[in-house]
Amino acid sequence: MSSGLVYAVVGVLLFVLGAAGMLLLPHLLRKILAFNLLGSGAFLILVGLAQRDGGVDPVPHAMVLTGIVVAVAATALALALLRRLHALSGRTQLADESADE
């Protein structure tokens, strides 16, 4: 098992952890954090898989670099939406979930 594969497997674990967090955690800030964890897992899989046989592949590197910046922008927008929701309704959870708990 090459080190690239180890990174990819860790990426899978982060991805699944993030996905489960998004489903299980009711607080929206935690959901945003879980979404970022999920994205980081995907990046790690991309980069790890690309170099599993030793060589470095610049194409996934460039894609991950692009993805990181887009993830930052998406996170900022999500945080702004969350703050707007909190300012308007005082809630930090989605409506049906708070009724559920």
Partner: peptide
């Protein structure tokens, strides 16, 4: 090579990425 991919071979990715950033703001 990474810069070549980002700005030449797949330049449209980078173009759209900056658009996404502006859109987020």
């Amino acid at each position: 090579p990474v810069t070549a991919v980002l700005l030449n071979f797949r330049g449209y990715d980078t173009l759209l990425e900056v658009a996404v950033l502006a859109l987020a703001l």
